[in-house]
Design a protein around this nucleic acid. Structure first.
Lengths: 162, 162
DNA sequence: GAGGGTATGGACGAACGCGACGTGCGCCTG
DNA sequence: CAGGCGCACGTCGCGTTCGTCCATACCCTC
């Protein structure tokens, strides 16, 4: 995996499309080369399916951390949240009820990077305290939430008659 | 949104493809209707992009919960984890270091369903205690982890020369 | 039974997937 | 250093698939 692969994958993530033509426009990589690269990435298991889900482990972001963030959001929580969103590696950001204010899931290259992540958090003035938990194994880390449901349950819970 | 829409979206999630032909095989919905339906879902904002990311709020799974699970995994943690994975609504499951054993992110239809989720957890013999946190606002809930990085950082952290 | 929304089938042009082939570059070997 | 080999990249072309348009059929509702 080299720079071009990374640019390609990032373009897919940013644009939200797998269209070779669009990716060409964004990356300047010739369309045929995009095919060539994507095929290799599929063979290598970095790309998992037609939806371009990425195996973060294979890609090189194998470290997952869950961070609880306590913050003083005397302004609005959105304001603080947006600052946290700008920190690199933050994949999920939840504003929550209860003891902690934000819960963050981050995907990082290695455990050394966790340090930087935390110091990025602490460098945000509104952040008062953080509490990080290392993930040993991500047994499921999917955005395809519907997978975990049966069709019946979905119809049921959404109140749809057959 | 009706049964067919749900079947379509679930097929996309299960198969990991957006190919109309494959979806037709899986759902028995005519190809032209698949086009018709998917277009409507895009217009309605349920499907967000070419990667078929789903707006869970628009879909009807607008409630997010983060649950810490304490378990007795005298067997293997995989064994317990696999049981937890079977519980409907579990989108992410992390086996972690530290005080808690598992951290779960779940997407549910409404807050009533949280009750059932928790009782599903508690019904698992190995589970000793759970601690759930409601999400007020999911400020980012993306699987496209690369979005949060700049190209430079990615290259840097993966140790790729330009 | 008239009319709006919804669903389906067919047909056509456009886009895509993929294999075949050509080129350039580095590296080994004689 | 010449020649040969292999890999990565790019170009071309063809068969397939996709997406859209239009015409028709369905089905409630009034």
């Amino acid at each position: 995996m080299d720079e071009r692969d990374v640019r390609l994958l990032k373009a897919i993530a940013d644009l939200g499309t797998g269209s070779p033509e669009k990716l060409h426009e964004a990356t300047d990589i010739p369309v045929s080369t995009i095919h060539y690269r994507l095929n290799n990435l599929k063979d290598d298991g970095v790309i998992e399916n037609d939806l371009y889900d990425i195996d973060l482990e294979a890609f090189g972001l194998g470290v997952t951390v869950v961070v609880e963030v306590l913050a003083d959001y005397s302004g609005s929580y959105e304001e603080v949240g947006n600052k946290l969103l700008e920190i690199e590696g933050v994949t999920q950001l939840y504003f929550t009820m209860g003891e902690t204010d934000f819960i963050v899931v981050a995907h990082l290259a290695d455990s050394d990077r966790v340090e930087r992540l935390i110091s990025d958090f602490e460098a945000t003035p509104e952040v008062e305290r953080t509490n990080s938990t290392f993930v040993i194994s991500a047994m499921r880390d999917s955005h395809r939430a519907l997978q975990s449901y049966t069709l019946e349950t979905l119809l049921d819970e959404l109140g749809i008659e057959d």
